[in-house]
Simulated scan of single mutants.
Amino acid sequence: MPALGSTLARRALGRQLNAFRKKAEISQAQAAKFLGISPQTMGRMEDGVSMRSATDLHVNELCNRYGVGDDKRRLVLALAREARIVAKHGGGWWRADADQGDGFDHYPVLLNSAQRMTAWRVVLLPEIVQTRDYQRAVAWAKYPSLPSDEIDKHIESSAKRQRPLDDSAFTVEILLSEAAIREEWGGPAVMAEQRRHLADIGRRSNVSIRVVPFQARSHIGALAGSFSLLEFPVLPHSKLVEPPVVHVEEYTGDLYLERAEEISRYRDAIAELRRVALSESDSSALILGI
């Protein structure tokens, strides 16, 4: 498994161990006692702040205590090894689809932990607001030789990624190129349903959807390309602010960016896109008008 970035693997490992512990109904103090470490150190490990205690021996011990099955055990051990490689040698930011043999997908885990998502899309609508028929059309285009039952599994997986939208504490800002709402994925009937769904979602109090029209003067959106900025709440144990992540979904994999200078440039791009985007009401009128 290739290295990701400086914190993604250890943050993912911490979240998985935290979820396993809670499912087993074991307190953090009890878990710390199993490993012979302080509850504070255990908390920092679950927050993804510290890797000092995330040895294979410790991770296996926790899996034994939590009653974790073999598949999930292999997953967290792979994350622990990845985190150690990154800490020792540094790592890149690219995660290719072909390298994800462990079956772990970082994006939905990050999305479920985030408190805010800001997305810009040039052609495809964000997965979080796609209808099933729209998802099916995209999946067939991306995987034309995939059997129908595998396409169905892909759509079910996509549907699970939309659950954060139902949490009123999770705020979503979506900025769309007009091309994204005019592109005919699946044909006119599919897109008519998708546009109505998009307008309905935009009425939620925790969602903002705005369109950058074709007549907007030259702006950074075409150069930046599609991306999502995920921002997170304060970590529960260490009380540190978890760094934001920019996620870029490409044809053969995913790019994750965490460095402050990179995040800053994407924030600047978002500010520019907000400047040229239509208001929420005008955007809704354009979407329904089409």
Results as ranks from 00 to 15, higher is better:
V86R: 11
V86E: 14
V86I: 09
V86L: 04
V86G: 08
V86M: 10
V86F: 07
A87R: 04
A87N: 13
A87S: 10
A87G: 10
A87V: 09
A87W: 05
K88T: 01
K88M: 09
K88D: 08
H89N: 06
H89Q: 04
H89F: 13
H89P: 05
G90F: 00
G90N: 05
G90R: 01
G90S: 03
G91F: 11
G92S: 08
G92C: 02
W93I: 08
W94I: 05
R95N: 09
R95E: 14
R95P: 01
R95S: 11
A96Q: 05
A96I: 06
A96L: 06
A96Y: 06
A96N: 03
D97L: 14
D97K: 08
A98G: 03
A98K: 13
A98I: 11
D99L: 07
D99V: 00
D99E: 00
Q100E: 12
Q100S: 14
Q100C: 13
Q100G: 13
Q100K: 12
G101P: 13
G101I: 14
D102I: 08
D102K: 11
D102T: 05
D102E: 00
D102F: 12
G103D: 07
G103I: 05
F104Y: 15
F104G: 03
F104Q: 12
D105T: 03
D105I: 09
D105N: 10
D105V: 12
Y107A: 15
Y107N: 15
Y107V: 15
Y107C: 15
Y107F: 15
Y107I: 15
P108Y: 07
P108V: 10
P108K: 08
P108F: 05
V109A: 11
V109S: 05
V109R: 11
V109N: 11
V109E: 05
V109I: 14
V109C: 05
L110N: 01
L111M: 07
L111H: 05
L111V: 04
L111N: 07
N112G: 15
N112S: 14
S113K: 06
A114L: 01
A114D: 04
A114W: 03
A114R: 00
Q115M: 12
Q115C: 12
Q115R: 07
R116E: 13
R116K: 09
R116C: 06
R116Y: 00
M117T: 03
M117Y: 02
T118R: 04
T118S: 07
T118N: 03
A119F: 03
A119L: 00
A119G: 09
A119K: 02
W120H: 10
W120L: 13
R121H: 13
R121F: 04
R121D: 12
V122L: 13
V122F: 04
V122W: 03
V122N: 13
V122Q: 12
V122R: 08
V123F: 01
L124H: 09
L124R: 11
L124E: 09
L125H: 00
P126M: 00
P126F: 03
P126V: 04
P126L: 05
P126N: 03
E127R: 13
E127K: 14
E127G: 15
E127D: 12
E127A: 13
E127T: 09
I128Q: 09
I128A: 05
I128T: 10
V129N: 02
V129A: 03
V129R: 01
